[in-house]
């Protein structure tokens, strides 16, 4: 059965409704609690196994030895010298990352931290290459 202007009533009703969109960027945008955002790095946990680098589909992550290494712990009398824990840096190329979180899920030491950060756009490309120390 044909009905001209069937949608008219609905359209009029919508005039009195609140907008369905949010006023971002003037208002804070809501993201879901498990939203996959930027990956952060905790250097104290990383053991430099490179598993994250190997698994990353976008070649977005690099793990390098830090320029400054922590000093060796003072040797204790009568015990073999404790192995020094090396310190690693992480270089994260945010322009390559596809935010899949595969690296964080692969990391055996949970050194990669999953955050809900999404406001990552930048006018300077260099800023997209983050160096976490």
């Amino acid at each position: 059965m044909k009905h001209p202007a069937r949608i008219f009533k609905e359209a009029i009703m919508h005039l009195f409704k609140k907008p369905a969109t949010c006023g971002y960027p003037f208002e804070k945008a809501k993201v879901m609690p498990n939203f996959r955002g930027r990956i952060d790095f905790d250097s104290s946990k990383c053991i430099g196994c490179q598993m994250c680098v190997r698994v990353c589909p976008a070649k977005a992550i690099e793990i390098k030895l830090s320029a400054e290494q922590p000093p060796a712990p003072a040797p204790v009398e009568g015990q073999p010298a404790a192995p020094v824990k090396k310190k690693f840096d992480c270089i994260m190329k945010l322009d390559r990352c596809v935010y899949c979180w595969q690296c964080a899920e692969t990391c055996p030491k949970k050194a990669l931290i999953m955050t809900q950060d999404f406001e990552l756009a930048h006018v300077d490309r260099k800023e997209l290459r983050r160096h976490y120390k």
């Binding site: 993201v31 879901m32 498990n34 939203f35 996959r36 596809v98 935010y99 899949c100 979180w101 595969q102």
Partner: peptide, 15 residues
């Protein structure tokens, strides 16, 4: 899309 984001962490590429 909100359902998908809530369940998977992303709206389009759910992975």
């Amino acid at each position: 899309l909100d359902c998908l984001e809530m369940l998977s962490g992303n709206r389009v590429h759910y992975s």
